[in-house]
Structure formats: C-alpha cells, structure tokens
C-alpha cells in the first residue's frame, strides 16, 4: 500500500476531497458575507439560514412543481435573492445609522425565525433531495474514484467564485461597488443610486448563499440545521481571510477546507478545532486577517 507520512494514499485523497468540498461551501458562503459586509457594514447572521432556504426552495420546486435540479440551481438563488431584497428593504435598511450590533441582532433574529419555521414544517431530520441523474455514479480519475456529484460541486463553486470575483474586479458595476464600499456618500454624490446598489448587493450575496444551498442539497439532504452547521466555521473563515476581502474569502475558504481534511488524516482529534486555532493565530499575528487591509 502506498503511504504518505505513514498514512494510506487513498485515505489522504478521500479526506482531501471532502475538505475541498467543505472548502467550496466555505468559499461561496464567506464570499457572500464579504460582499455584504463590505458595502452594508452588516455581519449577516442570517446567511446560514438563507443557505438552508436555498436548499428548501430547490426541494419545494421539485416536490410541488416538478422543477428539477438544473433549473433550481438558477431559480432558487433568484427566489431567495428576492426574499433578501425584501428583507433589506423592510428591515435591514432601518439600521444603517445605528451601531453594527443592531444589524447583527436583527439578522440573527431572522436566522432563528427562518430556521424555526423550517424545523416546524419539516422536523429536524429534514427531507432528502436526489442527485441529478447526469451526476450519479463515480468519476474515474485514474488514481482514485470520485463521486461525480462531488466533483461537480467543487467545479461549480470555484466557477461561481471566479465569476463573482471577475464581476467585482473587472466590470463597471464592480468598480462602483468597490468605490461605494470605500466611500458611499461620495459615490452617491456622483449620481449613483446607492440605496438601490445596497439592496441589490444584499440580494446578490444572499443569492450566493442560496446557490450553495442548492449545491449542498443532494449531499447533506435538506435539513433545518444545514446552515447552522456551516456558518460558525464560515465566520471564522471570514475573520481569517479579512473582513470584507473578496479574494481573501475565496482563497481562505478553499484553503481551510483542505486544511481540515488533512487534519482529519493526520490528527483527527483536532479536525473540529483546527480552523479556530488558525483563527486565533491569525488574529494575534495579523488582526486585519490574511488579506485584509489594516
């Protein structure tokens, strides 16, 4: 048997794959959080609940309207995005003149309500969601067999992260968003409807979470806790990457997923805490995060 540092190669590959998949979700979720935090200055504690909502919307589309996985991958983020727009316009936009803490409390409250409603409706164990036919079965990579759906999750998440990054770095709407993140009043004095930009940004960040939720549905089944399970780690990812840093959240998300996977192979006892240990070290050495501006 081939081993690396005394561990079987296949075990290593297996855990690296799992780590990469978790990393894909960390990256998608922290990316949305970073975009929202950058412009709105709000730590969106409802993010995990909206991720879950994405999964449930995909499930409901299939159950009640017979709309399958591929259309749901587009429709569920749109529907949850609109829900986010309504949330921003009715609740969050009242808080911009107040302390950060209010935004945190409000979105945390929203998360509790959304998750509570889901638990009432579906119970704690949730509902299954099938893997789309096209992605059933394994993919032979030569050195290992990889479930096709898991490979798709990594590719789709990386693609969406890259696309989001390109929009923010290379387009006019992206440069407007970056400018508004720095100095929103001045951007507004240049004729940009900043309140609308804020609403749409919140909607887009939330749509990213819902997209991740649809990706996650066939892997974890759709259940009320799926967001809560991820979100604590995702907040650590955001802190490590640097609050509001786009590139930071993508790189840190994938990187920490892989690090978790490696830890499961070499020192399983620490696999649940390694992300938080990294967070403590980063906060001590670089309080603004790996990619944050001091």
């Amino acid at each position: 048997m081939i081993t690396i540092f005394g561990k079987p190669l296949l075990l290593l590959y297996g855990q690296l794959t799992l780590g990469l998949i978790n990393g894909a979700f960390y990256a998608l979720l922290s990316l949305g959080l970073a975009v929202i935090f950058g412009l709105l200055n709000i730590i969106n504690f409802a993010h995990g609940a909206l991720f879950m909502l994405g999964g449930f919307v995909a499930w409901a589309l299939l159950e009640y309207l017979d709309i399958g996985y591929w259309p749901a991958l587009v429709l569920a983020p749109l529907i949850v995005g609109v829900f986010g727009v309504v949330m921003e316009k009715t609740l969050i936009n009242r808080l911009y003149k107040l302390d950060h803490l209010y935004g945190l409390l409000l979105t945390f409250g929203c998360a509790l309500i959304i998750e509570g409603l889901a638990r009432n409706e579906f119970g704690s164990s949730g509902v299954p969601y099938p893997i789309p036919d096209e992605l059933r079965g394994p993919l032979d990579l030569g050195f290992m067999m990889l479930p096709a759906y898991r490979a798709w999750v990594v590719v789709a998440a990386a693609g969406v992260c890259l696309a989001t990054w390109l929009v923010i770095e290379k387009t006019r709407i992206g440069s407007t968003l970056r400018a508004a993140t720095e100095n929103a009043p001045l951007v507004q004095a240049f004729g940009v409807n900043v309140p609308r930009l804020i609403t749409l940004t919140y909607g887009a960040g939330v749509a990213l979470a819902a997209f991740a939720g649809v990706l996650a549905a066939p892997i974890y089944s759709v259940n009320p806790n799926m967001g809560a399970n991820f979100i604590i780690t995702v907040f650590a990812v955001v802190v490590i990457g640097g609050m509001g840093s786009i590139l930071g959240s993508i790189v840190t998300g994938f990187g920490l997923g892989i690090l978790e996977g490696l830890t499961k192979v070499y020192y399983p006892q620490a696999s649940a805490t390694v992300v938080f240990m990294v967070m403590v070290i980063v906060l001590l050495a670089r309080p603004a995060g790996l990619f944050g501006k001091a």
């Binding site: 507004q188 004095a189 240049f190 004729g191 940009v192 409807n193 900043v194």
Partner: peptide, 8 residues
C-alpha cells in the same frame, strides 16, 4: 433631493 438626484 437625495445626493444622486442632485448630481443628476
């Protein structure tokens, strides 16, 4: 007016 409308 809002600043963006003043600019406009």
């Amino acid at each position: 007016l809002r600043p963006d409308l003043i600019a406009r």
